[in-house]
Amino acid sequence: MTTLPTVIGIAGATGLVTGLGALPVFVRGRVSHRTYDAALGLAAGLMVAASVFGLILPGTEEGSLEAVLFGLLVGGTGLLAGNRLIPHLHARYRGWRAEGGATRADAAGMVGKGTATGADGSDGSDDSDGDDGRAAILDAALRRALLVGGAITLHNAPEGLAIGVAFASGLEEVALVLAVVIGLQNVPDGFAFAIPMADTGMGNLRVLAYTALSGTIPQVLAATVGFSLVSLSTGLFPVAAGFAAGAMLAVVFREMIPSSHGHGHSDAATAAFLVGFVLLVVVDAVVVV
Rank of each mutant, 00 (worst) to 15 (best):
7 V>K: 02
10 I>E: 02
19 G>W: 05
42 L>K: 06
42 L>F: 15
45 G>C: 12
47 M>C: 05
48 V>F: 04
49 A>R: 08
59 G>S: 06
59 G>D: 04
62 E>L: 02
63 G>K: 01
63 G>R: 02
64 S>D: 09
66 E>Q: 13
66 E>L: 13
67 A>C: 03
67 A>W: 04
69 L>S: 12
70 F>R: 10
74 V>F: 00
76 G>W: 00
81 A>V: 05
82 G>L: 09
83 N>E: 12
85 L>S: 00
86 I>K: 01
89 L>R: 09
89 L>M: 09
91 A>E: 08
94 R>A: 15
98 A>W: 05
103 T>F: 03
104 R>F: 04
104 R>G: 14
108 A>D: 15
112 G>A: 06
116 A>L: 11
117 T>Y: 07
118 G>E: 14
123 D>T: 14
124 G>S: 07
126 D>V: 12
129 D>R: 13
130 G>Q: 06
135 A>P: 06
135 A>D: 15
135 A>R: 15
140 A>P: 06
140 A>Q: 15
143 R>A: 06
144 R>D: 11
151 A>Y: 02
157 A>R: 00
167 F>Y: 15
171 L>E: 00
178 L>K: 01
178 L>I: 11
187 V>P: 12
191 F>W: 09
194 A>I: 10
201 G>H: 12
206 R>A: 14
212 A>R: 08
223 A>E: 08
225 V>P: 01
229 L>I: 15
230 V>G: 01
230 V>K: 01
239 V>Y: 04
239 V>W: 05
242 G>I: 11
244 A>H: 02
248 M>T: 07
250 A>H: 01
252 V>P: 01
255 E>Q: 14
264 G>H: 09
266 S>V: 11
269 A>G: 07
273 F>K: 11
278 V>S: 08
280 L>Q: 08
280 L>A: 05
281 V>E: 03
282 V>A: 14
282 V>T: 09
285 A>R: 15
286 V>T: 12
288 V>P: 00
